[in-house]
Amino acid sequence: MSQRLTEFLIGLLFGVGLLLSGMTDPGKVIGFLDLAGNWDPSLALVMGGAILVGIFAFAFAKRRTTDFFGGAIRWPTSSAIDRRLVIGSVVFGAGWGLAGFCPGPALVSLGAGVPQAIAFVGAMLAGMAIFEFLERRR
């Protein structure tokens, strides 16, 4: 199986997981983030289910030196816990709470033709472009 095909299929699997889990419904996401209201705990199970599988998979992957195609496994290089990480994550969380979309579900909803998702992804790409612009000026 070609490398491009596996990447496509894994993207597809991830998208199906997002649809099944309820993550693509902003109403459900905000229902989870609304601790003080009528709380929908579903997304805790999404995270739990994903990590349940992930914890074994990543332990296995750490003991390997190459991927299925013989290439190097590209682990994240930074372990820094700094202001950039925290402030960036807080800004992301604020946006997530405002509309109920995070990047993956927004892209899946874009694929489904949801008008607000198209606007959200456009704005998200603009935000990412602003980051690139500011990084290049540093």
């Binding site: 405002l98 606007a119 704005a123 935000g127």
Partner: peptide, 12 residues
Amino acid sequence: AGLLVGVGTRYG
């Protein structure tokens, strides 16, 4: 929200 998610995820 989209703008905040775009900028925030890249910095974070």
